[in-house]
Amino acid sequence: DEVRLHVNGHTIEFRGIDEEIFKILEEAAKRGADEEELRRLAEKLLR
């Protein structure tokens, strides 16, 4: 299960996240989070 999030012209792939987590990451990206911040956030949410 892989999703792709487009951030500042880059595509970031995440594996094993559900739609709810994806929406949180998408919102963070809209607020200016970079790839590293998004990955840290995803790790926290998946715990």
Rank of each mutant, 00 (worst) to 15 (best):
E43A: 08
A28F: 10
R15A: 14
E19C: 06
R39K: 08
E43W: 02
I21R: 05
T11L: 07
I24S: 07
K30L: 09
E19H: 07
R40Y: 09
L5Q: 02
R31T: 12
G32P: 01
V3F: 15
R39W: 08
R31K: 11
E20T: 12
I12E: 06
L25Y: 01
T11I: 14
L41W: 04
L46N: 07
I21L: 12
R39L: 11
R39M: 11
E27W: 06
I12M: 01
A33V: 10
T11V: 13
K23S: 10
V7L: 07
H6Q: 14
A33M: 13
E43I: 06
L25K: 00
G9A: 02
R4M: 08
L41K: 02
V7P: 03
I17K: 02
N8T: 02
E27I: 12
L46G: 08
R40W: 09
H10E: 12
L25T: 00
K23F: 08
I24M: 10
D34V: 09
E13G: 01
E2T: 15
E43L: 05
A29N: 05
R31V: 09
R4H: 15
K30A: 08
E26Q: 13
L38H: 00
K23R: 13
I24F: 09
I24P: 01
G16H: 06
A42H: 07
L38F: 03
E13S: 05
I17G: 04
R4L: 12
R39F: 09
E20C: 07
D1V: 14
I24K: 13
F22W: 05
I17W: 02
R47S: 13
E37D: 10
G9L: 02
L45V: 06
L46Y: 03
E19R: 04
E36V: 13
D1Y: 15
F22M: 07
E26V: 14
E20P: 08
R40T: 12
L46A: 10
R47H: 13
G9S: 02
L25S: 00
A29T: 05
H10K: 15
E43T: 07
N8Q: 04
R40M: 10
G9E: 03
R15T: 15
I17S: 06
G9R: 00
D34C: 06
E35F: 10
E27G: 09
E37Y: 10
I12L: 03
L5P: 02
K23A: 11
E2S: 14
I24A: 11
A29D: 01
V7E: 01
A28R: 08
L5T: 02
T11S: 06
L45K: 04
L41E: 03
I24Y: 10
G32V: 04
I12P: 04
A29V: 12
I24T: 08
E26C: 13
E26W: 08
I12F: 00
I21A: 11
L38Y: 01
G16C: 10
L46F: 04
K44G: 11
R31Y: 08
K44S: 14
R15L: 15
D34T: 13
R4P: 03
D18A: 05
H10C: 04
I24G: 03
A29M: 07
E20F: 11
R4Q: 10
I17R: 01
D1S: 13
V7A: 04
L38V: 08
K44A: 11
L45P: 04
G16R: 00
D18I: 04
G32Y: 03
K23T: 09
H10I: 14
E36A: 13
A33Q: 06
L41P: 00
E27F: 05
E19T: 07
I17M: 08
L5C: 06
L25G: 00
D34F: 10
F22D: 02
H6Y: 00
T11W: 15
A29C: 05
N8S: 05
G32D: 03
L41N: 01
E35D: 05
R15H: 15
E27A: 09
G9F: 01
V3G: 07
I12K: 00
G32K: 01
I24W: 07
I24L: 13
L41D: 00
R39A: 04
R31A: 12
E35H: 06
R39H: 09
L45T: 04
A33K: 06
G16N: 07
F14G: 07
H6A: 07
D34S: 12
I21W: 05
E27S: 10
D1H: 14
E36S: 13
R4Y: 14
A28C: 05
L5N: 02
K23D: 06
G16Q: 03
V3S: 08
K44L: 12
R47A: 14
V7C: 01
E19I: 09
A42Q: 03
L38G: 00
H6E: 15
E35Q: 06
F14A: 08
E2L: 15
D1F: 15
T11Q: 05
E13V: 12
R47W: 06
E35S: 05
D1M: 15
R47V: 13
R47N: 14
L38A: 00
A28H: 13
E26R: 06
R47K: 12
R40G: 13
G9T: 01
R39N: 06
L46M: 12
H6T: 15
I12Y: 00
I12D: 06
I24D: 03
L46T: 14
L46Q: 14
L46C: 07
R4C: 07
E35I: 14
L25V: 04
L41I: 11
G16K: 01
F14R: 04
V3A: 08
F14K: 04
I17E: 05
L5Y: 00
R31H: 14
L25D: 00
L25Q: 00
L45F: 04
D34W: 07
E13R: 04
K30D: 06
E20W: 11
E36H: 14
L25C: 01
A33P: 02
G32F: 04
K30S: 09
K30Y: 10
A28V: 08
E36M: 13
G9W: 00
E37V: 13
R39E: 03
I24C: 06
A42I: 09
V7Y: 01
G16Y: 03
D18K: 02
F22Y: 09
G16A: 02
L45R: 03
E20V: 11
D1E: 10
G9P: 02
E2D: 09
I21T: 14
N8I: 01
E37K: 09
G32A: 02
D18T: 15
D34Y: 08
L41Q: 03
L38S: 00
E35T: 07
K44R: 08
I24N: 05
G16M: 01
E2W: 13
L5R: 02
K44D: 13
K30F: 10
E35C: 05
E37R: 07
K44F: 10
D18M: 03
L25P: 00
R4A: 05
R47Y: 05
K30M: 12
A42Y: 09
A42L: 08
